[in-house]
Design a protein around this nucleic acid. Structure first.
Lengths: 335, 335
DNA sequence: CTGTTAGCGCTTTCAC
DNA sequence: GTGAAAGCGCTAACAG
């Protein structure tokens, strides 16, 4: 139904290949014919078929992106940035959802292989290491975020960032500091917890297992875990959360218990999502350089897709953003 | 590089076309050969090329989705649901960002046409009516959400829902009720405002232009507009917001001014995003049936893409979800 | 500078 | 039930 290159060729009276060249701005076509062809093609409403081109060139100019849940604001922000950078390089994004189901994740990858995407970017993969090693030798390259056991990956320093967050709380005088984990990527929460533990140990504060709970990367989990902490004989005076959504839930639980943030309990989140500064109180958080992550991931995917020298695996530093959800320990309890 | 159908044909000793049929579970192939071929294909690691198939069948089994900003939680939730339903029908989603730029939106559409997607779904289009009428007769079908001037669209009753929200506030005794608009789709905010006006007028409450402001569909806008309202001689006792993000910003501004929600000012949002119930206070909002919207939109896109009878344009009702951000007027000011 | 000719990997008549 | 062959719309040698 749509106008083809052949139609344009017939209309202009030149050969099909000349049209192809003219439309590709190939310098081997005379300026006159090129412009003539381009003009006519435009007038005829010619829209090149990326499908046919993909078949011929074996490149589809599209990346697959598989996420657990685009509703996670951090992932949404990341995917948006990936889209922007990908577009600059001429790629489109095919988005697939995997939920928390590893099987669905593998199914999504399989579908993307059928679609012959040039590369796959997975911002929060849950696939096991055994699969990763297999996928690494697959026909189509895969770039992972925050999964540093994998060669083609971009991530942030989760251990160091966790440490940074907890140091901030220690500096404010807190000693009973809790951690609420999550389950976005496999190793992510563990590493942040490692940073938490390390920070405490360095200051000689003992780690209390009762102050460590595992949420679900969502506000519901944060709420439940925080409620549990509040029932402790000696509740924490500060909480470090896997991500901002968890922190939001924790804050809700604190308010519901008639306490206040940060007067009674300080809260630190992670990701520094766009909403963080609008929450009440504005949330102290660890910011990830999403812009840079997205750019590096796209560049890596592009390099892998075009057989260019692949940039090295990168670990970005986190950055503490202090807002109003953290305060000096004992602000209220000691008065 | 990857295994092709031809490879499988040679390996099995049958003709290419037989392999094609066998893999498509075509009953015209004997059970024995079919199973043999399928088994061998699997062993050889054959992955069918959706590209080649697309060229041959003129169907790519993919929908384009162009959004202004996937970071908007409402859109993210919608896109996730669209993805689920699309997958059930065998479609993948190609996601493109348009920002608030109509030109980028058109560019995105153009790219999707090149990709030969079977249909385009636009949850929050900003393209003008003049363009819409053009796009309607385009080669590739477009389904719009919340843009009821267009034949192929699914939406919610924005006027009625706005009215519902404001009636709720009126029922609580509020008389000075403000509206903070947004700019997601073109007509969306206007319609909600229309509902706002209508509700007030029906109860004989005069509409005060000073109580109407235009935000940006984000928390920042809500914050700014609310701050402006608070500087009025007679500030509102309740605010109806274009969406939940706007409401979040408004709430922040209220707290920053030393006032409380809902004791001093009640706030109603729109969309009922997943976060709404975790905010402090939990947000009263108008829920849209995203599940249904997504399903209807995908079904419509599918029908259009396959030349089946197209279901009718649908307008879904909104649903008021009362939480803790709204309360009786004068709770505090009159004591 | 332009035309001819093979494909790319699959579907789909049309024969047998 | 299976095979042969003609495309789908484009790119990319290879000639001229």
């Amino acid at each position: 139904m749509p106008v083809t290159m052949d139609d344009v060729a017939k209309a202009t009276g030149v050969a099909l290949s000349t049209v192809s060249r003219a439309l590709a701005d190939n310098p081997r076509v005379s300026v006159a014919t090129r412009e003539h062809i381009q003009k006519l093609a435009r007038e005829m409403g010619y829209v090149p078929s990326a499908i046919a081109r993909g078949l011929a060139t074996k490149r589809t100019c599209s990346f697959g992106v598989v996420v657990r849940d685009i509703v996670d604001p951090f992932l949404a922000e990341l995917v948006r940035l990936v889209d922007m950078h990908a577009l600059e390089l001429g790629y489109s994004l095919i988005l697939s959802h995997a939920g928390n189901d590893e099987r669905r994740e593998l199914a999504a990858i399989h579908l993307l292989r059928q679609k012959r995407v040039d590369a796959i970017i997975m911002p929060d993969s849950s696939v096991s290491d055994s699969f990763l090693s297999k996928v690494a030798h697959e026909d189509i390259p895969v770039v992972l975020l925050n999964q540093m056991s994998y060669p083609y990956s971009i991530g942030i320093d989760n251990v160091g960032s966790g440490e940074m967050a907890v140091n901030h709380l220690l500096d404010l005088g807190h000693r009973r500091i809790a951690y609420i984990g999550g389950l976005r990527c496999r190793a992510e929460s563990d590493d942040r917890q490692k940073g938490y533990t390390r920070a405490l140990e360095k200051r000689g504060v003992s780690v209390d297992p009762a102050l460590i709970a595992l949420g679900d990367s969502w506000s519901g989990g944060g709420q439940v875990c925080m409620r549990q902490f509040l029932h402790l004989e000696r509740p924490p005076t500060a909480v470090f959360c896997f991500n901002d959504l968890t922190a939001l839930g924790a804050i809700g639980a604190i308010y519901s218990a008639g306490l206040r943030v940060p007067q009674d309990i300080s809260v630190v989140g992670f990701d520094d999502i766009a909403l963080a500064s609008f929450l009440h109180p504005p949330l102290t958080s660890i910011a990830q350089d999403k812009e840079q992550m997205a750019k590096l991931a796209v560049d890596m995917a592009h390099a892998l897709a075009t057989d260019q020298p692949v940039p090295e695996r990168t670990i970005l530093p986190g950055r503490l953003v202090v807002r109003a959800s953290t305060g000096i320990s004992g602000l209220r309890t000691n008065t």
